[in-house]
Design a binder for these strands. Sequence first.
DNA 1: ACCCAGGGTCATA
DNA 2: TATGACCATGGG
Length: 230
Amino acid sequence: MLRIYQRLYDCHGPQHWWPGDGPFEIMVGAVLTQNTAWSNVERAIGNLKAAGVLAPRALATMPAARLARLLKPAGYFNVKTRRLQNFCRWYGEQGGYESLKHWPTRRLRHALLSVNGVGHETADDMLLYAFERPVFVIDAYTRRLFSRLGLADGDLAYDALRGMVEAALEAELSRGGRGGRPPGRRRLVSLYNEYHALIVAHGKDVCRPRPRCADCCLADLCPAGTVDQP
DNA sequence: ACCCAGGGTCATA
DNA sequence: TATGACCATGGG
């Protein structure tokens, strides 16, 4: 797993995720980017900023019709209006970031998942990128990549796949580190952060749904027959 | 014209 | 548990 990471890093370079000004903006982005290109999300966030409503209270209480207009460029604007307001109401009820940041990761994930509109990936985006918890985010790109490399069954349940990847990376870091010592939290957070960003960059670049990985920088690691030949 | 994007929910069997 | 329909804009 670490070998794959190194290859992706050498191939695509540092990615500097997550674009967003502070934890709350990151969480808003996590909801808006559901099945949506990030460039479209940036426009919607720009609209929210320009309107001066990029804050939990303002988003939670503003008229849905107005919010929907601002979210239009992000697509699914009616669905996302409902989801974002659900989330912001919950966020305010729990006392905001200053309160939530003290919660243990398991409890925080469970609570996030209880919000209608926040699923596994969105919750884990928030946990990793906003709360800096050591959580490996699984998305469609990740499934596709590890599946094509023959490292994981592509249709494993979300938490099963996440647990597998986390366990593998922790084990490899322990073996690599002096004295077989387990990796620290900050080390894991920065690795998971950059790894997920690299997988997305790689997915956008060459590792598309239709396999045409002829000049993919991981092509030599794929089992024969899983990628198109040049 | 077609494919795809940093998913999730709900109804149905 | 496991499918399928649905949501909607914008870039290549």
